[in-house]
């Protein structure tokens, strides 16, 4: 017997690659430490998840919705610290470096987004 797959209409979910290897999507979900919304959802100011509401990785290994973190860092109370562990906030370049430059594009436009977010 020879089986040939002619066409496959499949269904998949996308997930942020947070570096964790658990493939059990139904387990305890990863949520943003600031807004408590799952990473695959979007931050409270956004309406569309995914590329339009990306994540940001800290040197401290904490991950947030980028918009949530930028908003937090923008407050005086933040003292530029990670809201989870109060260590000085720094974005991990290491994580970004394994990715394509497009991510950098996204970071660069993120300040525009922040402006936009404030206006809203």
């Amino acid at each position: 017997m020879k089986i040939t797959v002619k066409r496959w209409h499949a269904i998949a979910q996308w997930q942020w690659d947070t570096g964790k290897t658990d493939d059990n999507g139904d387990a305890e979900e990863d949520v943003c430490g600031i807004c408590r919304i799952p990473f695959e959802g979007c931050c409270p100011t956004c309406k569309v998840p995914g590329d339009d509401c990306p994540l940001i990785w800290g040197e401290c290994s904490h991950v947030f919705h980028m918009h949530c973190l930028l908003k937090w860092i923008g407050t005086a109370a933040s003292k530029q610290q990670c809201p989870m562990d109060r260590r000085p906030w720094g974005e991990t370049i290491a994580h970004l470096s394994v990715h394509t430059p497009r991510n950098l594009d996204r970071i660069s436009i993120s300040s525009d987004r922040r402006e936009k977010g404030r206006r809203e």
């Binding site: 040939t4 797959v5 066409r7 496959w8 998949a12 997930q15 690659d17 995914g50 994540l55 991510n103």
Partner: peptide, 29 residues
């Protein structure tokens, strides 16, 4: 497919809902 997807969207990965969808097969007996 998942590999190709990850190359295109490096910060994301796919989780298949394998039980959903449909597949067209040709079976040569």
């Amino acid at each position: 497919y998942a590999r190709e997807f990850m190359t295109f969207k490096p910060d994301k990965k796919l989780r298949w809902l394998s039980h959903l969808g449909s597949i067209r097969l040709e079976i040569e007996l």
